[in-house]
Design a protein around this nucleic acid. Sequence first.
DNA 1: TAGTTGAGGTTGACACATCATCCAATGGAC
DNA 2: GTCCATTGGATGATGTGTCAACCTCAACTA
Lengths: 174, 174
Amino acid sequence: MAEPARLNARELRSWTGYHRMSARFAACLNQSLLKDAGLSYADYEILVALRECPEGRMSAGELRCELRWEKSRLSHQLRRMQERGLVRRETNPADARSAVVRLLDKGRCAIEKATPHHTARLRADLFDLLTEEQIDTLADISETVLAHLERREAEALPDGPHGIERIEREATGR
Amino acid sequence: MAEPARLNARELRSWTGYHRMSARFAACLNQSLLKDAGLSYADYEILVALRECPEGRMSAGELRCELRWEKSRLSHQLRRMQERGLVRRETNPADARSAVVRLLDKGRCAIEKATPHHTARLRADLFDLLTEEQIDTLADISETVLAHLERREAEALPDGPHGIERIEREATGR
DNA sequence: TAGTTGAGGTTGACACATCATCCAATGGAC
DNA sequence: GTCCATTGGATGATGTGTCAACCTCAACTA
């Protein structure tokens, strides 16, 4: 690429602004949620997903897929939430490897208390400040970048260590 | 406010998109930085700030102000970086309370190695995907939200715990 | 049927961020 | 001078996120 090594003024303004805003906004949301309902944003995401399910039950795999989380992150998070009595892990009779997560009363109570505050905060600190065009542009940008990252990672995987292992195995005739 | 409790379709698309993108993008940047130069993004920010200074020296207070970090966060981060030989804390002869952070050779080497990769990644994964209008809109949105959050927090402080303590002290005559 | 592979999940180690608390030096107020 | 609130910073506890290693079960294959 023939592009200059440093960001230009437009890019720099956009990046520093975005970077500071996203960090601050996430911290702000987390704090509000903690104050209003004693939940972290990670807790909130789990509970929202579970609330949308019939009987508040969802397989851990679905949950991971829905939230795009790493499996170890989900495992740690569920352990902590289970210790606090928000959810419970149950064994899946259909497949002994997988697990089912159940929303407990305490968790349902917490999420119902938290949601209105959270929505109000999203409005007050984000959407009420923006025009409809800006809101749409933010969505467009996010989807563009997200699609790009997912495409890149999907391409990287087959050529990554996995692919190399396969090739080596074939080359040595194992 | 008479607004509905739930987000509308436009807001929901924007929020879920933004939220997923920002999490993923940050993770991606962190990973690249770690792979390319063995630095976390937190390390990177510190080192960038120090590199811009004459002789790579900066007071801890300035650093905190520049990065908008909490003091304990900076303290922990500097300790870890000092243990790895990237920076060194020195006492300030002018004020024995404060400290001066010095960029060591190993740190300078790391940041010089990391920067081109980081810039290239910002281009490839963000700016090359967007129009100039989108880049500007992202900056506008970020600055609007950031200004709002800073205004809100500045207003909250004088009426917060600090103010209450002062009033209580005065009321009890202490 | 025994061995292999892969998927689902857990665990431990470590880096990171926040909070509350503590300590030392400073700069006034008296 | 002596208090004393403030400031700059360090520390320990706790919650969070990632990575690597591991275990179990299921499915496939020789």
